[in-house]
Amino acid sequence: MASAVPAQVRLANEIAVQFHHRPADEAASAIANHIRMFWAPSMRTDLLTRAETDTAYLDPLVLEALRLLRN
């Protein structure tokens, strides 16, 4: 049985879907901004930690957004 996708990963991917129509750099910036503004620090930390070890389920736009959040 495959493991369930963690909630933060699922939520971040759902946000990314809303921005797929925009250029990738704008979309990543908008996703990073949304996460920065609306997510609890513990949720951000969890997502950033997961992205360091397992990117298989993360949308490429989320990965770019996380790179922006780290800077």
Rank of each mutant, 00 (worst) to 15 (best):
D25N: 03
D59K: 02
M1G: 08
A51N: 08
P41C: 01
R22L: 14
F19I: 03
Y57H: 15
T53C: 12
A12I: 04
Y57C: 12
P23H: 08
A12T: 00
D59E: 09
R50L: 15
A16F: 10
T45S: 15
L11M: 08
F38L: 09
E14V: 05
Q8L: 02
H21A: 12
A56P: 05
N33F: 13
A27M: 04
L48C: 08
H21P: 06
A28Q: 03
L61E: 08
N71G: 12
R10K: 04
H21S: 13
R67K: 13
P41F: 08
L11V: 09
R44D: 05
N13D: 15
E26D: 13
S29T: 08
A24M: 01
F19R: 10
V62P: 05
A27Y: 01
A32K: 01
A2L: 11
F38Q: 09
N13E: 11
T49K: 15
D46V: 03
F19P: 01
D59V: 02
L61H: 00
I31L: 08
L47R: 07
I31D: 05
T53D: 12
P41V: 06
N33G: 07
T53M: 12
E14H: 14
R50M: 12
L48Y: 10
L69K: 07
A24N: 01
R36Y: 09
T55N: 10
A30H: 03
A56H: 14
N13Y: 06
H34E: 10
R70M: 12
T55R: 14
E64N: 04
I35H: 04
R22N: 10
R22E: 13
M37T: 11
Y57E: 14
L63R: 05
A4W: 00
N13C: 14
V17R: 14
D54N: 15
L69H: 08
I31T: 07
L47H: 02
M1N: 06
T53G: 13
A28G: 02
V62Y: 03
D59H: 13
L58V: 08
L69Q: 02
E14P: 04
R10P: 00
R10H: 09
A7W: 07
N71P: 06
P60L: 05
P60F: 04
L63H: 02
D25M: 04
E14I: 02
A30N: 09
T45H: 14
R67M: 10
W39S: 07
M37S: 15
V9W: 01
M37H: 04
A2K: 13
I31C: 07
R36I: 00
A65R: 01
E64R: 03
I35Q: 03
E64Q: 10
D46Q: 13
A56C: 06
